[in-house]
Simulated scan of single mutants.
Amino acid sequence: MGIKKQLGMGIMSAALGISLIGGGTYAYFSDSEQTSNTFAAGTLDLSVNPTAIVDVDDLQPGSSITRNFELQNNGSLDIRKVYLESAYTVNDAHNNNTEDFGEHIQVQFLYNADKFDEVIFETTLAELKDMSPEAVNESIFYPEFGEQGLEAGSVDDLTVKFNFLDNGGDQNQFQGDSLQLNWTFNAEQGESEEK
């Protein structure tokens, strides 16, 4: 190889090396921004006051008792539907019951404390226990609250009258018996809306 060729190759190699070094060290401007978003879930908080439904001694056929319940929506979301699950147990004092004591306790759901004569729905504890929560909502809470449900921060009264039905027959089997009633209120949120 001649000297001219070697010199030409050396110059080309040097030029290539310089271009690689220069190409790797160029500078440019940049900028970045970060956004921060918060997504907070709303709350459903249905509370009932008082929590004891009925605590009555010495009921007799034909007697009744009325109780007011305050349904409170303490959450940040509207409650569209309220479901009620009803359960009870009977303590048969003399082990002589041939009938279910719950069939003799009538439950009347009234519009509010000012209108005791306006019944929303009427059934027995035995029938109420077997009803689906959806049927209870349609029969009791929808007529009371309507389509708007129970709005966030609102309070509504539910008045219930319990009647020990006098069937005109011998009800001696229920003497000394007690019935433990448990109601569970479940809330379902209202329609979602675009924020």
Score class of each variant (00 low, 15 high):
Pro61Gly: 04
Asp55Gln: 12
Ser63Met: 14
Asp170Met: 07
Phe109Gln: 04
Asn172Tyr: 07
Gln175Ser: 09
Glu191Leu: 14
Asn74Met: 12
Lys5Cys: 10
Glu188Val: 11
Phe174Trp: 03
Glu147Pro: 10
Phe174Met: 00
Asp166Val: 05
Gln72Asp: 11
Gln60Glu: 15
Ser154Gly: 02
Asp58Lys: 10
Val56Ala: 09
Ile105Phe: 08
Leu150Tyr: 05
Phe69Thr: 07
Asn91Glu: 09
Thr98Phe: 03
Ile3His: 09
Glu191Val: 10
Gly190Trp: 02
Glu138Asp: 14
Asp92Met: 09
Ala93Ile: 03
Thr184Gly: 01
Ser47Ile: 08
Thr184Pro: 01
Ser132Tyr: 07
Gly190Lys: 02
Thr66Trp: 15
Gly149Met: 06
Asp177Thr: 12
Leu20Ile: 11
Gly62Tyr: 00
Ile53Pro: 04
Ile21Pro: 01
Asn37Val: 13
Glu191Ile: 10
Glu147Gln: 09
Phe116Asp: 10
Thr184His: 07
Leu16Arg: 08
Leu84Ile: 00
Asp156Ser: 13
Leu46Ala: 03
Tyr142Lys: 12
Tyr28Cys: 07
Asp170Gln: 04
Ala135Lys: 09
Gly10Trp: 02
Gln171His: 01
Phe29Lys: 14
Gln180Tyr: 08
Gln173Ala: 11
Thr124Arg: 02
Glu70Gln: 11
Asn49Val: 13
Ile105Trp: 03
Pro133Lys: 13
Ile120His: 00
Gly102Glu: 01
Gln108Leu: 12
Phe121Ala: 15
Asp170Ile: 06
Leu128Val: 05
Lys129Trp: 00
Ala41Phe: 02
Glu103Met: 10
Lys5Tyr: 08
Ile140Val: 10
Val107Glu: 06
Ala52Arg: 11
Ile11Glu: 04
Ala135Gly: 03
Leu44Thr: 05
Gly75Ile: 13
Ile105Ala: 07
Tyr88Ala: 10
Asp156Leu: 02
Ile105Thr: 02
Thr89Trp: 03
Ala52His: 07
Phe162Gly: 06
Glu134Ser: 12
Ala27Val: 15
Thr66Asp: 00
Thr124Phe: 01
Gly153His: 00
Asn95Thr: 14
Glu122Phe: 05
Thr89His: 06
Ser132Phe: 01
Gly102Gln: 03
Asn137Tyr: 11
Leu110Ser: 05
Asp157Ile: 15
Ser178Lys: 00
Gly10His: 00
Asn96Trp: 04
Ala87Phe: 14
Ala126Met: 04
Val119Ser: 04
Gly190Ser: 06
Leu20Val: 09
Phe109Ala: 06
Thr89Arg: 08
Ser178Thr: 13
Ile21Tyr: 10
Gln72Trp: 05
Thr124Gly: 08
Lys4His: 09
Asn74Val: 06
Pro61Gln: 01
Tyr83Pro: 05
Glu122Met: 08
Asn112Lys: 07
Thr98Gln: 14
Asp156Glu: 10
Asp177Gly: 08
Lys4Asn: 14
Ile11Ala: 13
Ser192Asp: 15
Gly75Arg: 15
His104Val: 03
Leu7Phe: 09
Ser86Cys: 15
Ala15Asp: 01
Gly176Pro: 05
Gly17Ala: 15
Asp114Thr: 10
Gly24Cys: 05
Phe39Cys: 06
Phe109Ser: 00
Phe141Met: 03
Lys5Gly: 15
Asn167Phe: 00
Phe116Gln: 13
Asp58Pro: 07
Leu165Cys: 04
Glu103Gln: 10
Tyr83Thr: 06
Glu191Pro: 06
Glu193Ile: 09
Ile120Cys: 06
Pro133Glu: 11
Tyr142Ile: 07
Asp58Leu: 11
Val160Asn: 04
Met12Glu: 03
